[in-house]
Every structure is written in C-alpha cells, then in structure tokens.
Design a protein around this nucleic acid. Sequence first.
DNA 1: TCTGAACCTTCCCATCATGGTAAGGTCAAG
DNA 2: CTTGACCTTACCATGATGGGAAGGTTCAGA
Lengths: 139, 139
Amino acid sequence: MQIGEAAAATGVSSKMIRHYEQIGLIPAADRRDSNYRDYGAADLHRLGFIRRARDLGFSIDEIRDLLKLWADKRRSSRAVKALTLKHLTDLDEKIAQLAEMRATLAHLAQCCDGGDRPDCPIIESLAGTAPMPAHHHHH
Amino acid sequence: MQIGEAAAATGVSSKMIRHYEQIGLIPAADRRDSNYRDYGAADLHRLGFIRRARDLGFSIDEIRDLLKLWADKRRSSRAVKALTLKHLTDLDEKIAQLAEMRATLAHLAQCCDGGDRPDCPIIESLAGTAPMPAHHHHH
DNA sequence: TCTGAACCTTCCCATCATGGTAAGGTCAAG
DNA sequence: CTTGACCTTACCATGATGGGAAGGTTCAGA
C-alpha cells in the first residue's frame, strides 16, 4: 500500500507520515523498486495509534513513550497511567489559563455598550487607564 | 530609556520589543548616538497595551487592529467589541476542544487500575482494540 | 588610563506540528 | 505515447518566543 492510501486509511497526512519517519517516531518504511514507500497492516496500526494519541493532545515525545509502552509486553499499566495523568494536568493548566482569559474578556465585553461612540472599557483596560480585573499570576 | 529598562518596565522582553519593531507592530524606536534604541513614555504605554492584549490571548494581528482602534479617536466601541467577541468565540472553541480531550483522558485513566500488570484500557483505546469514547467531530 | 562587567547591536538558528510548493520520477489508463 | 495522478526529495512558512555568537558602547572601579 502506498503512502497516500495509508494516509487516507489512518487520517495521518502523507506529509506527516514522512515527517514521523524522519524524526524516528516510526521506522523507515519498506520501499518498492520504484522507491515508493510501502505500508502493511502493522504500519497502519501504528499510524492509527499515533493519530488517536494526537487527537488526545499528546505531544510527539509523549507518543514516543506511549509507542514504547505499547510495544513492551512487560509494561505496567501504572506507567501508562502516570503518563496519562501528567498529560491530564497539563491539559487542566491550559484550560485554566484560557478560562481565565475568557472570563476577563467576557467581563470587559459585557461592560462595553458596542455603540457608535469611542468610549470603550475594553480599550481603556488594555491601555491601562482602567484597572484590569484581577488576574492571579498564572505562569 | 534603553531597551532593557523598557523591557523591565513593561514586561515585554527586549527580544520581543525588537521583534515587534521588525514586524511593524510598533514604529521604529528613536536611536541615540550609540545606535542604542531610546524609549519614552508613549512607547512604554504602547508596550504595556501590547502586553496586556497578549495576556488576554490576542494574536499579533488582532493587536495590530486593536492598536489602530486605540489610536483612532473616531472609533466606535462597536468595532472594539466585535473584535473582542470574535476572540471570545475562538477561546471558547479552544477550551471546548481541550475539555473534550480532558474528558476522554479522564475517563480512560479512571478505567486503568495503574497496577503492575500490562493490561491497560488507555493503551488499548489508542491501539484501536477497544472503542474510543465517542468524539463528536471537532474541526 | 586601563579594564572588566553589563549593557547594547545585528544576524542566524531552534522550537512544534503542520502545510505549501517546486522540480522531477513512476505508473496505469486511454 | 501522452496525460494525469500519484510518488520522491528539498526547501520555506507559520506564531511567538528564546538562545547564542560576534562585536560595539558605557560606566564604574583600580
């Protein structure tokens, strides 16, 4: 199966499949006489794994670890869970940051009448001429 | 005031101040005889504006627009509010995506006993040998 | 006056995951 | 034998930020 088919079958673009090979996330694919890459069932399985992990927001490095664990039949589920929980807290941090921005913005937008005149608490807040709603020092 | 002081005063790094100048977000700074950049009160004010906008997650292009609106005394608060509400919906989308990942991961982690044995619903789910919790096609 | 530290300058490179494009090789159908 | 759809490598771009090199400036202390 050539790369385009593998891409269509797994939802990982040809570009990214080549990239993953180049950074060593997946082994170098077999080649045909034409020099075209050739993919089999095991390759598709691995690419599907990677796509699902990406969909859950795991980084390439985390996926590298997950692939090792997947291949290791003597792994402990503890190790997998630890990696997952770490990622979970990363997600929670990001969500909290975004939620804080969102809350501040929503408050400012609510205080802005949105009419023709220039007076605008949003601009004033950015300009520092009005106090910003408290933001608890994130990061 | 030279660039390091301006950086310390506004919370925008020297690196970023030069970068903002290079991409035209701020006008080219005055130079002293030494060729060092020289910043005044108006520059600090603008940099503070930019930093606060970045803290709220606005992109450089959005900040470009916000700076134009800030400078325009004939602006309508409607325009500012529209830009803000657009950014707000962007934030909501990102938050929803992350929250969905988070929910899926939390569910998987909860189903994983985290013991010594290799059986792990997280790995199985990534491998596609167990069904993934439904994910409503985002993006 | 010399020297060293602490600034500043420009220029290039790296991140992270992904996409675009260009120049050229391969293959199957018409 | 041409056409079009695929493949190959190689390079460049994103967005916001930082790191570092190589060299100029300024100021304080010996």
